[in-house]
Design a protein around this nucleic acid. Sequence first.
DNA 1: GGGAAAAAGTGGTTTTTAGTGGTTTTTTTT
DNA 2: AAAAAAAACCACTAAAAACCACTTTTTCCC
Lengths: 150, 150
Amino acid sequence: MSNFLGSHAINMDAKGRLAIPAKVREELAQACGGRIVLTANADEERCLLVYPEPEWEILRPKVEALPNMNKAARRLQRLILGNAAPMELDGAGRILVPPTLRSYAHLEKKLMLIGQGKKLELWSEERWFAWLDESSDDDEMPPEMEALSL
Amino acid sequence: MSNFLGSHAINMDAKGRLAIPAKVREELAQACGGRIVLTANADEERCLLVYPEPEWEILRPKVEALPNMNKAARRLQRLILGNAAPMELDGAGRILVPPTLRSYAHLEKKLMLIGQGKKLELWSEERWFAWLDESSDDDEMPPEMEALSL
DNA sequence: GGGAAAAAGTGGTTTTTAGTGGTTTTTTTT
DNA sequence: AAAAAAAACCACTAAAAACCACTTTTTCCC
């Protein structure tokens, strides 16, 4: 199973194409033959999520099955399902980001691709660094996290 | 199991390469054959963490398994996983620190490598000495620490 | 204590690979 | 059928990685 790590600075060209870094490309080739699903992130951070297709097919039914009389659940469904775009890497290892997703995540030229284990996150570089600088406020930690020893 | 102790002053060259001190290199060779994972520190101190690969593989699943609807947990995942860079020492016993990590920890020429038992910490020399001078305020201690007798 | 040898650290050079941009062809829409 | 947009293809530039040689420091032996 895929295990994405690390961050990569990448540029999107004028056509909305972006070259997946070679190392990530290798992992994607192995995990899904280059077949991925790009969608919106559901939390307050406006970034995109990149799933290898098999990983997406585990997640998708779970999202579809959420009890959607609940407002938060409906929101999640609309964002995740309503923005999902299956695609393949082109011959040069690039993907073409659909305009709607581009504007959702405020993607311009300079981007950051962030490994997050089973998926990747795609951020506007500006927003990523702004997020890094945010104070890690007094959010409550789950007990599993309290017990961690890094 | 590895047990890193002591601190070493080291220089990073213009390309971002830094020579691991010979004594540390020996320990790394024994612990992981020179295979390490470099990542960001998650707390407010902007330094890097150096894990021998086996040690990293104990930590990684714990971080990936955190409940990521929680904000604090997501932050930890983005920092630890999103900055992780597996690497090996080169022929001369050096590592190349990726640009993103270099800027995260404000690393310039003069660095400090600090043994921390199962891992090492890598600091900008300036920040390390500034930290040493900080007042160790009135932060609350966990009970295990209260019970210590140095 | 001095000198020699070995090891460690430093810097530069070369080669390979990844990223970028443009061009052509095909498909779709009006 | 023509024009425009999208997709695939191809070539060139730039950056990263591996390699190699030199300098400095430390250690061991005389």
